[in-house]
């Protein structure tokens, strides 16, 4: 199933000062890169899309997914996946539990362990289900975080400086993995970054925010 995202004339301001004005289509499997200096409100745009905009901001405009406005739904029903620069694996859960937390509740109880094992195999971490996430390397954690999000069957993918903490070698590897997966699943992606290399690798349209 492919999804098309339309950021429909979104304007976000704080204290009467407009931070963001954007009107942009993101096709299925396409990556929209949002670039700009820190403090320009890149993450604020993601907050709006995901539904966690702090109350001191005012925003207008719609986030249309296949024509329906996401803003009408609470965060947890939007099916918008997000990855941050930190992996943010839940430290009190094992690797397998983290994935199970993400795995859609529609998957039957009996099938869940097999799905999680399969997901671990897909990211090259076979047999890691019982491991403490804190014992994983940075690259391994990033892959678990990505898989945890994919298991929740998102319809949109947001990347908030998702690759900036990884070292150069891992960054290429994880970036390719994320973009390939998004393309394979036909997900529209919005990537916030300050690294031109990210935008080049994404190959999609680039939107520049200014101060």
């Amino acid at each position: 199933m492919s999804h098309e995202l339309h950021l429909d004339n979104i304007r976000i301001s704080k204290d009467g000062h407009e931070l963001i004005a954007i009107d942009q289509m993101v096709a299925a499997g396409e990556v929209l890169s949002v670039m700009g200096p820190s403090g320009a409100g890149k993450s604020t745009l993601l907050n709006y899309i995901i539904g966690t905009l702090p109350s001191d901001f005012t925003a207008t405009g719609a986030v249309l997914l296949n024509g329906a406005d996401l803003c009408a739904l609470p965060s947890n029903q939007r099916q918008v996946g997000i990855l941050f620069q930190d992996d943010l694996l839940f430290p009190h859960m094992s690797v397998g539990q983290n994935l199970a937390f993400g795995l859609s509740a529609d998957v039957r109880r009996a099938d869940r362990p097999a799905r999680i094992d399969q997901a671990l195999t897909e990211i090259g971490l076979e047999g890691f289900a019982d491991r403490d996430p804190e014992t994983l390397s940075g690259g391994q954690k990033a892959r678990v975080a990505l898989m945890r999000m994919l298991l929740s069957e998102p319809r949109v993918l947001l990347l908030d400086e998702a690759f900036s903490r990884l070292d150069t070698e891992r960054r290429d590897q994880i970036r390719t993995l994320v973009f390939d997966t998004a393309r394979a699943r036909q997900l529209p992606v919005i990537m916030v970054t300050h690294d031109q290399a990210d935008a080049d690798a994404a190959g999609g349209p680039v939107f520049y925010l200014t101060d």
Partner: peptide
């Protein structure tokens, strides 16, 4: 952000 992630995962 842990909360944002968990909400994005449908909680």
């Amino acid at each position: 952000r842990f909360g944002t992630i968990a909400a994005a995962l449908g909680r």
